[in-house]
Structure formats: structure tokens, C-alpha cells
Design a protein around this nucleic acid. Structure first.
Length: 215
DNA sequence: GAGTGGCA
DNA sequence: CCCT
């Protein structure tokens, strides 16, 4: 039997070594099937309390991806820009970040501070996300941790400025990516969702959780 | 005019 | 290419 790759030992079954790509640490299959299923179950309660919505971008188009958040802050955008908000657009508080997710963050980052935002992005099979930087947070010395659940996504990694050559990698259900250090401000996006590649979500699609220290 | 764009 |  292979050793668990996170200290708490509750997630991983072992398997592939981490892949490093342009400073992104990619942990294939870090969450085992049981952990993925348990997490999805918790997220059902989250989307019930704080339903998914499609934010409008500052230039007027609604995003393809639907989203909600957990934690003290949630990511939001409208005509006046990208930002974090203390409440869901319905006025309710964002639900708490699941303990399983916080444990994963602690194990991977070994930081004292835990994230104050866990953004949930839902991609249907046609959804994409253009190349962007995560730069709405106050302190870029904290990493961003990203968890993939459900259908596989073609993830594209660029550079610290727009343009230039890029590299792509398929992210599968249970994969976890840490974007820290120089990679913290690297452009990235999702080009494609592979419909039917996972049975985790009965109706298909992909959930991506991103953990951030916002303030 | 660039876009956490949309479409062909 | 189109649009905001």
C-alpha cells in the first residue's frame, strides 16, 4: 500500500507524484473517491443555502460559469468590477467552508492562517473561463489552492503577463492544484470540459473549489 | 479596446 | 470577427 501524501491521511490513496508546471503544483488524484463523494454531499447543502449565480463582468456579459462561495467572503462581479463581498447576492451569509477543505488547505500549505474564501465554480460541459489572473486579494504571498471535482477540464497556464506561449494539462476529479510563489499571479484559464468523463456529479459538469486568503 | 467574452 |  502506498503512503498518503497529506499529513491527515484522510484524503489520498497515494498514486502519482506531484507534477510541477510553470510553478503550479498539481497533485493528481489527491482526493480519493470517498473524500470526493463526501465533499459533493456537503456542497449540495451549500448551493441550497447560497444558490449558484452567473456574475456579470465589468464589460457587461454574464460569465459562462455559475458560482457561489463559502467563508467570510465570496467572489463577486458586476458592472462596477471584480471584488469580494461579505454576503451572497440574496443577502444571506456565505455558508461556512467545509472542515474537509480546511484540513486539506492546512495539510498542503502548512500555514497558520486558513482561507477566508472558498469559491465554488460550476462548469457545465460548454462553460469555459478565459485567461485571467487571480488578483482581487490583498496579499499575494498566500497561495491559491484549487480542487477539481467531476468532469475533467483542460487547464491552460500562461505567463505573468498576457500573451506568450502557454501549456495545457487535463485536470481530473480529485486533483488539487497549488498556485503559490511566482505562479500566484500567472495567467490561467479553462478551455474545455470533457462531458461524461466522471460519474461523481449525476448530471455531469465540473465543480472547481478555489481557496483564498482574501484580506 | 480588452475581455475570469462568444461564436464560427 | 462580433459586442459591450
Amino acid at each position: 500500500m502506498q503512503e498518503n501524501r497529506v499529513k491527515s491521511g484522510v484524503f489520498a490513496t497515494g498514486g502519482a507524484e506531484a507534477i510541477r508546471l510553470r510553478g503550479f503544483d498539481i497533485h493528481p488524484g489527491l482526493l480519493n473517491a470517498d473524500a470526493q463523494a463526501a465533499l459533493v454531499e456537503e456542497l449540495r447543502g451549500v448551493t441550497k443555502a447560497a444558490p449558484l449565480f452567473s456574475p456579470v463582468t465589468p464589460y457587461g456579459k454574464p460569465m459562462r460559469v455559475r458560482m457561489t462561495s463559502m467563508g467570510k467572503f465570496g467572489w463577486f462581479s458586476d458592472r462596477s468590477g471584480y471584488r469580494y463581498e461579505g454576503k451572497h447576492p440574496s443577502g444571506v451569509d456565505w455558508p461556512p467552508i467545509p472542515e474537509l477543505v480546511l484540513t486539506l488547505w492546512r495539510d498542503l500549505t502548512e500555514l497558520e492562517r486558513t482561507p477566508d474564501c472558498c469559491l465554488l465554480n460550476f462548469y457545465d460541459s460548454n462553460a469555459r473561463m478565459g485567461m485571467h489572473q487571480d488578483r482581487d486579494e490583498a496579499d499575494f504571498s498566500y497561495p491559491v489552492v484549487s480542487i477539481s471535482l467531476g468532469d475533467s477540464a483542460l487547464f491552460r497556464i500562461g505567463n505573468e503577463t498576457r500573451g506568450g506561449k502557454t501549456e495545457s494539462i487535463w485536470l481530473n476529479s480529485g486533483d488539487v492544484v497549488v498556485m503559490g510563489g511566482a505562479a500566484r499571479l500567472t495567467y490561467h484559464g479553462v478551455d474545455r470540459i470533457r462531458a461524461g468523463s466522471s460519474t461523481l456529479l449525476p448530471k455531469g459538469g465540473r465543480i472547481n473549489l478555489t481557496l483564498r486568503v482574501v484580506t
